[in-house]
């Protein structure tokens, strides 16, 4: 089973670096971004499964970033990271497509657990899509070949 790729998005760099180190120790290799814009830029270049997204950031805020991510990469799961006071935003985020939310200060274990759950869902979705494509291929293999060619 492939390792999940996480991206941490927060304006606190020390939080990013320390959490990255911890995740490294748990065997993950997370990407980091200090703003919503940087996250979108990195998503364009790199493969990411789950985004841990701080709600309150300078520049593009978490909810706007989430909408962008979901519209460009619908399969990427997003977990909102919020101070309790911005739970309203987290709720709004979930309505827009976030998988879940975490309140600060959060435990690393909690973070990993939720990220894994999100990753699981993403894999199931991808599995469903793959199954659907397989079914389609069996019905009309040429279409699949055409589509695959077109997609490349």
């Amino acid at each position: 089973m492939a390792k999940m790729v996480m991206m941490l998005v927060d304006d606190e760099e020390r939080f990013l670096s320390t959490t990255s180190k911890l995740l490294n120790k748990k065997g993950y290799e997370p990407l980091t971004a200090t703003s919503g814009q940087e996250a979108l830029d990195k998503l364009a270049k790199e493969y990411v499964d789950v985004v841990i997204l701080d709600v309150k950031m300078p520049g593009m805020d978490g909810v706007t970033a989430l909408k962008e991510i979901k519209s460009r990469y619908p399969l990427v799961e997003v977990i909102m990271l919020t101070g309790h006071g911005t739970i309203d935003n987290a709720v709004e985020g979930m309505k827009t497509g976030a998988y879940d939310y975490l309140t600060k200060p959060c435990d690393l274990e909690e973070l990993i657990t939720k990220a894994e759950e999100a990753y699981e869902r993403k894999r199931m979705m991808e599995e469903k899509i793959r199954m659907a494509q397989v079914r389609k291929a069996m019905a009309s293999p040429r279409e699949v070949v055409k589509e695959t060619d077109g997609g490349k």
Binding site: T18, G83, P105
Partner: peptide, 22 residues
Amino acid sequence: GFAHEINNPLQIIRAEQTLIET
């Protein structure tokens, strides 16, 4: 607002502590 701002440094302290412990 106050609590929210405090939560950010708390989050970092928590992460640092977890790192040291690990």
